Computed example of a mutant assay.
Amino acid sequence: MPMNNRPAFASADGSALEIRALSHSDLSRVLEIERQGYSHPWSEAVFLDCFKDNYRLWALCKEDSLIGYAVVAYLVDEAHLLNLCVHPESRGCGAGRSLLEHLVGKAGDDGMVQVLLEVRVTNRAAEQLYISAGFEEIGLRPGYYPAAHGREDARVMTLPLGSK
């Protein structure tokens, strides 16, 4: 582990990646990535509301530049992945997978028994990432996400982490 005690690893393209806790000072960059990553991005107020004890917010950095983030809510013994986004220019090199593996590992360390998430039915890349990480679809939430023309369904997926 590097001297600053943050986990470091290499992406598929060989770049050094690092994961650390997300801070309030990261929000302007997070909002920039959020707007590029989603048709209906979260507002600053939504992100600010996530800085609570039962949330885990992770920053993914490449050469000290924030390139992705994840927001996870802990509810009893379940980790609910609410948002995982990687800057469009950093996709396809394993950055999202590294962030997902990190948050799943931390959830297990924190005694969570499963990770739950929703993913747009049209987001095939994210769905494939989750499936390749061991997530399984357990249901559908009709009209869960806002869309350009109405609402879009979400697949509900889960990854069991084992018993406490």
Rank of each mutant, 00 (worst) to 15 (best):
E127F: 12
G68I: 00
Y74Q: 07
W42T: 14
G94S: 08
Y145E: 11
K62F: 00
L22G: 06
A125W: 04
V115K: 00
P2C: 06
E63A: 15
Y144C: 04
A59G: 09
Y69V: 02
H24N: 12
S39N: 10
L161Y: 05
R6Y: 11
A154H: 06
I131T: 14
L99E: 00
A154Y: 11
L129N: 03
S132L: 06
V156M: 09
V30A: 12
A59V: 00
L57Y: 02
V113N: 09
G143L: 13
N4R: 12
V86Q: 01
R56G: 02
Y55K: 06
E136F: 03
M3P: 12
V156G: 01
E152D: 12
Y55G: 02
A45T: 15
Y38T: 01
D26S: 12
D53H: 14
A45C: 07
D109K: 14
Q36D: 11
R120K: 14
P142F: 07
L116F: 15
H80L: 07
S65Q: 15
A21G: 10
S43Y: 07
S23E: 15
I67S: 01
V104C: 14
D64G: 08
A73T: 02
N83M: 05
L159V: 12
E34G: 01
L60F: 01
L129F: 07
Y38W: 11
K62L: 09
S163W: 09
I19W: 05
P2L: 10
S11G: 11
A133K: 07
G111M: 07
A45Y: 07
G143T: 09
M1L: 12
V71W: 00
V76Q: 09
N123I: 06
S98N: 09
N5T: 03
L161F: 03
K106R: 15
I19Q: 05
L31V: 10
G105E: 14
W58S: 10
N83K: 08
A125D: 13
R151P: 06
V156W: 04
R155Q: 08
F135R: 01
R91P: 06
C85M: 08
V86G: 03
E63V: 04
G14K: 09
A21Y: 08
I67H: 01
M3S: 13
P7V: 11
S39K: 06
P160G: 08
H149S: 13
R6T: 07
D64S: 15
R155V: 10
A79S: 12
V119K: 05
R91A: 10
K52Q: 15
P41S: 10
E32P: 03
N4G: 05
D26N: 11
F47I: 06
V30K: 04
A133T: 10
F47E: 01
L159P: 02
G139R: 10
L82T: 09
A95D: 01
A10D: 04
E118D: 11
L84I: 15
R35M: 09
P2M: 10
